[in-house]
Design a binder for these strands. Sequence first.
DNA 1: AAGAATTGCGTAATGCTATAACATTTGCCA
DNA 2: TGGCAAATGTTATAGCATTACGCAATTCTT
Lengths: 133, 133
Amino acid sequence: MTTAIAALTKNQALVFETLARAKTPMSAYTILDQLRDNGFRAPLQVYRALDKLLDAGLIHRLESMNAFVACSHEQCHTAGLIAFAICENCGQVSEFADAAVSRHLTDWARDHKFNVAKTTIEIRGACNTCANA
Amino acid sequence: MTTAIAALTKNQALVFETLARAKTPMSAYTILDQLRDNGFRAPLQVYRALDKLLDAGLIHRLESMNAFVACSHEQCHTAGLIAFAICENCGQVSEFADAAVSRHLTDWARDHKFNVAKTTIEIRGACNTCANA
DNA sequence: AAGAATTGCGTAATGCTATAACATTTGCCA
DNA sequence: TGGCAAATGTTATAGCATTACGCAATTCTT
Ligand SMILES: [Zn+2]
Ligand SMILES: [Zn+2]
Ligand SMILES: [Zn+2]
Ligand SMILES: [Zn+2]
């Protein structure tokens, strides 16, 4: 039995480590630029790694900003619906799972016979630090 | 006192009517193509109109697909948090307001002292019709 | 009405995000 | 070792959004 991270290929590991080190979300092209010294030359090298990392639940895509973040939980993808609070000033992202929100949206889907594949919840605004500055 | 729609400029009205007629979300470039005969030549003409329509609450942007839809409610923007269920097969979008979801996310923001500017909720999946086909 | 300020418009150029297509390499297993 | 699946490298292209500039129309103020 190996951990998910040990199974990563070289490119996948490089992309994941770049995201894990970052304090804020990164776009695919920003990741590319940071990995030029590691032999990355083209966007596809990044996007292919990102796809695998998304599948593995190691990272998340923030739809409202076309950017990616490392998952801040150990195996958060088992925790049901994930939401994000994104500070538009400093870029910090808080990842959280709210069971009540998850349940209500699941209920809505059941009531309307909608077959859910993926749910995106992103709150944009100002974090506590930035709001007081 | 005039209605919001009466205050629209020519370009804004053309873009809004295009979206209002559409049965599914449209990208800015698709809108542009449909308005070539009306004198539209450049993306900016569409994006400027979209910005105003978003401000007015007459349309919504679907972050997970870089597309836009006409609001399906009369003045829905007064109804608090809006969510979307998007069928990935037929493209149909259901716009709904769930008070319980809205309240729970508001509570989370209060508890974490996060100053909310805008919230995105988008459910991707298959609508009832498509799931049974 | 004249001038100033705001808003909207037209056009061209550019930048950012993502995928298609094709060839090659690598790792694994029958 | 031969064959297969996954990963990689490279080039080109498609799709989405904004910057910059100049001008025209509208609205506000005096
Ligand atoms: Zn996570
Ligand atoms: Zn902040
Ligand atoms: Zn609406
Ligand atoms: Zn459908």
